[in-house]
Computed example of a mutant assay.
Amino acid sequence: MKYSFLLCLLSVVLMGCSSTGTVNVDTLKYSSWQYVSEDSDAETQPIQFEFLDAFRVNGFAGCNRFFGQGEIRSGQLFVSNIGMTRKLCDEATNTYEDEFLNLLQIGAPLQYSENELILEGDVKWRFKLVKGHFD
C-alpha cells in the first residue's frame, strides 16, 4: 500500500516538472537567440536578439540594429516602441528585415523548448539559443 502511494506521488511530481512548452517573461529574460536559416545559401547575416532587464528586446535584424519593449500576452510575443538604426541594404535584406520587425509589432505566436524558440507568422521563424550576449 505504501509502495503504491509513493509511486503515485512520484509520478505526480514528475509530471509537474515536465516542460509544457509554455513561455513567459521569466522564461526568456536574459536569453539570446539566433535565427536558423532553412536556406543554406542565404547571404544575409542571421537575425539575433536578446531579452534584457524589464524585458527590453535588443538585436540585429539582418541589416540594422533594433530595440524595443517586449511583452508576452496570450502566448504571443509583442515588441512595441521599436527603434532602429537606418542603414540601407539590398532589397532582399530590407524585405527580410521588414517582415521580421513587422511580425514582432503585430504579435507572434510562440513555441518554446529549452534550446529553440519559434515565432509563427506567414512562415516559421526558428531561433536557437545562444550562450552569452551579443555586442
Rank of each mutant, 00 (worst) to 15 (best):
M1F: 11
Y3D: 15
Y3A: 15
Y3V: 14
F5H: 11
L6N: 10
L6A: 11
C8R: 07
C8G: 13
L10H: 04
V12W: 08
L14C: 11
L14D: 02
C17Q: 09
C17I: 04
S19N: 09
S19V: 04
T20A: 07
G21Q: 05
T22R: 05
T22C: 03
V23S: 00
V23D: 00
V23F: 00
N24D: 11
N24E: 02
V25W: 01
V25R: 07
D26A: 01
L28Y: 00
L28M: 00
Y30H: 02
Y30K: 00
S31R: 04
S32D: 01
W33S: 01
Y35V: 00
Y35R: 01
Y35S: 03
E38D: 05
E38R: 03
E38T: 01
D39I: 07
D39N: 12
D39P: 06
S40R: 04
D41C: 01
A42I: 11
T44D: 10
T44I: 10
Q45Y: 06
I47W: 08
Q48I: 10
Q48W: 04
Q48G: 09
F49C: 05
F51G: 04
L52F: 03
L52W: 03
L52N: 10
D53K: 12
D53T: 07
A54K: 13
A54V: 05
A54C: 02
F55N: 07
R56I: 01
R56L: 08
V57A: 07
F60L: 06
F60G: 03
G62R: 07
C63W: 05
C63Q: 06
F66K: 01
F67K: 02
I72W: 00
I72S: 00
S74P: 02
S74D: 05
G75W: 03
Q76I: 02
Q76D: 02
V79A: 04
S80V: 05
N81A: 12
N81H: 08
M84D: 07
T85I: 07
R86K: 13
L88M: 11
L88P: 02
C89Q: 03
C89W: 01
D90E: 13
D90Y: 08
E91D: 14
A92G: 07
T95V: 12
Y96K: 11
E97P: 12
E97K: 12
D98P: 08
E99I: 14
L101K: 10
L101N: 13
L104N: 13
L104P: 08
Q105F: 09
Q105D: 12
I106M: 14
I106A: 15
G107T: 09
A108D: 13
P109C: 09
P109W: 12
P109H: 09
L110F: 09
Y112W: 11
Y112K: 07
Y112D: 08
E114M: 06
E114A: 13
N115P: 03
I118A: 09
I118Q: 06
L119D: 06
E120T: 15
V123N: 14
V123Y: 11
V123W: 09
K124P: 07
W125K: 12
W125D: 10
K131S: 15
G132H: 12
H133G: 09
H133A: 14
D135N: 12
